[in-house]
Amino acid sequence: MHVSQISLLTLSACIAGSLAFPGNSRDSLSRRGIPSVNKPKVLSRRGVPNTGTDLDPPDGSSPPQNIDKVETAFNDAIELTSYVLTLIDSDTDIYPHYFADGDKAEIKRIFQVINNGDKGADFLNNVFVTTSDPSGCCTGATLACTQDAELDNPQITLCSQAFQKKAVTALDGKGPNDADSLDFYAACKADGGEIDQNVSYVFNTLGMTLLHEYMHMDKMVQASFGSIVDDPNGNPGYGPVNVYDNLAKDQARINADSYAYYASEVLWHILCQTTFQAPRPGTDDQDPTCGGVCQP
């Protein structure tokens, strides 16, 4: 979600037009702590947002705390862009559900800017992530919002329900073999998780929520289409049903959730070695975290 200043403030290529599943690319839950396709959580990253003291864990508390979830989500957001960049050039299966073919070069450039050689854009050092909500955006189905997106120092507010979203890469304080690991990690159906046959809200990790918010940052993205927003020109732009085929392509390119769900489908297509079916209205867009369609 974007709160305007005014309102306050690497894998195999595709073969013969279809995505090929690379050998040994499946990142099962039991291997979450082992870098395979994923990069290790601690990288010599340049572009990492700052966090507020409100995210500091209470003394004597056990991880994973909210700060642990956020730090992993920073890595997960860049992971999403990495997966896109390995496949977008030859992707003729997933990409057309989200964007127009003629926009591919610019869509790819936007992901490249955020990715920055898997280190994260330098601009992310200017971003402040907090639970503080001066604009009062954390109501209803909202997971997060970005304030002052047009400026040099944007703020991302994470609402309380955002912390129910799961991780992809290694999460401090929660091993992949722990009995309750599936409460903390998103996972494929074959690994005991919820990600099954359809594009769905279960794709939405905390890292995907952050990636959505990054798309609103004009100074970083500098999209030739103009600002990347929510509900472009009043057209519904949240959730898997709205962004998958339904949103006109000239609107999708300026819609943040289109980028977020495209990246997430690419990632889970590879990790689960599954070609997903279209999201089902009234089923795959009804996220219990938000009581319906989430608004990142």
Rank of each mutant, 00 (worst) to 15 (best):
V199C: 02
N233G: 11
Q251M: 07
C188H: 09
F276C: 05
Q273S: 15
N177L: 14
V243M: 03
Y259Q: 12
S264I: 06
N242R: 03
T275P: 00
H216F: 05
S258T: 13
N204V: 11
K189T: 00
A190Q: 13
F276A: 02
T205H: 01
K189R: 12
G175Y: 08
Y261I: 02
L267C: 03
Y261L: 04
I228P: 06
G239M: 01
D257Y: 03
S224H: 12
P176N: 07
A190K: 12
I195Y: 00
G226V: 06
V202W: 05
T209D: 11
D183W: 05
Q273T: 14
D245N: 15
S227Y: 01
D231H: 11
Q251K: 14
P236G: 08
A263M: 05
A223M: 06
A186N: 14
V266G: 10
C272D: 04
L267E: 07
G237A: 05
F184H: 13
Y201V: 00
R253W: 04
Y185P: 09
P232I: 13
I195K: 00
L206V: 14
W268T: 08
E194G: 10
V199L: 01
I254Q: 02
N204K: 13
F184L: 06
A190H: 12
Q222V: 04
W268G: 06
I195A: 01
A252D: 12
D245C: 02
A248P: 15
V202G: 00
H216G: 03
S181I: 03
H269P: 01
M215G: 14
D183S: 15
A179M: 01
F225Y: 13
Y201F: 13
W268E: 07
D178W: 03
D183M: 09
V243P: 01
V241N: 04
S264W: 00
P236Y: 10
L271F: 05
L247W: 12
T205V: 10
G234S: 11
D257V: 10
A252V: 06
D178Q: 07
C188S: 10
N177T: 15
A187L: 09
